[in-house]
Design a protein around this nucleic acid. Sequence first.
DNA 1: ATATTTATGTGAACAAATTCACAAGGAGGT
DNA 2: ACCTCCTTGTGAATTTGTTCACATAAATAT
Lengths: 206, 206
Amino acid sequence: MKSQFPFPTVIRLTYYLRALEFLLTQNKSETSSDELAKLTNLSPEQVRKDLAYFGSFGKRGKGYPLPKLYEKIKELIGINKEWRLCLIGLGNLGKAIVRFKGFPERKLRFYAIFENDPKKIGGEFQGIRIFDVNKLPEVARELSLDIAVFTIPDDQVDKVYELVRKTNIRGILNFTSAPLHSEKDLFVKNVSIAQELEIITFYLSK
Amino acid sequence: MKSQFPFPTVIRLTYYLRALEFLLTQNKSETSSDELAKLTNLSPEQVRKDLAYFGSFGKRGKGYPLPKLYEKIKELIGINKEWRLCLIGLGNLGKAIVRFKGFPERKLRFYAIFENDPKKIGGEFQGIRIFDVNKLPEVARELSLDIAVFTIPDDQVDKVYELVRKTNIRGILNFTSAPLHSEKDLFVKNVSIAQELEIITFYLSK
DNA sequence: ATATTTATGTGAACAAATTCACAAGGAGGT
DNA sequence: ACCTCCTTGTGAATTTGTTCACATAAATAT
């Protein structure tokens, strides 16, 4: 097992995960780099190299044992354990994300929602309590939150970011257009709908 | 002007756009690769190289003229003209996206929503008409749609993708977990919330 | 005028990631 | 037991992308 791997490999691991889930529904017990390559639109060499970064799971002449590889990738990605999430900003997008079906089956669970609207604070949404965003440091500690999802207006990002930094939350999924940067002990993933569309219009403009 | 540029440059162009918009609110008339680098968390060399791929907009010893560079980048990204969008699948996420504030100011406008729920078909949402998804080919032609946003259940992706291929829609923003692949004349950008979280949990697991 | 400072633009050096090419191990047939 | 066919795993070659280092040009100061 090599310790260093290209950054894009992490993204591809998530593709393999989906491909493996698909293959498991087909009741297969074995797969190959060729099969995974076809399902993910990658090259078989790329698949083998990626998997080899983390150990050698396959058997030459045979392929990869399906359930074992699946468990291994889940372990690598870290979705074999439960993660405690909170949502910050209960607007339209926030509501859509809390209701998102994909979370429970991935052991991702929301334990708190934060808001600055006094009318919402104290209530709950989908069974999850809504707290004052200024109480974030205390609540995060109390509920041992791991990851925060930002669905707030752009102009509040800096303030909320500072609040999160005071907690032991170590991951942020940022849906605003204001990009944040990862730092030591705080990993940030930015997802900007506007940006995604700009990338599309760039390519369509050519 | 060079014709070939690294793929990541396109993503960075969208960062420069935001930085420039921020600088414009400060009523500045000039900027520099240093300033843009600080705002985007990149290196000044990277900024200069990226901008130089598309022409030389700067003046040595001076910097870049702000409004001119802004217009140029908008033109490069293609958001100087209007784009006609449609939403496919009016669930929670779909509703959140249609209501998203960032679109009108970017000349991105929804002209149609497609659904397979007979109760929704024929109605409208936020002033946008809701059509039967099976009518997509006709409606797309009639309304000259450019881009489709997929907010449908994963198991309907393949079917809807085939419908879209029959139209002159050339861009898809896919919010499902089933990744689609770009092909000639049809550019696909995948955005999977589950995947983004998996990338976070991967790094937090280390 | 001339020197100094500042900031772009870019070839060259370097680094990262992918693809190639093939050795090596396992399965199955004869 | 041996040969053949598969398919993995991996160094080496190649491609792609970033950083360095500096020549060049504009602006400012003396």
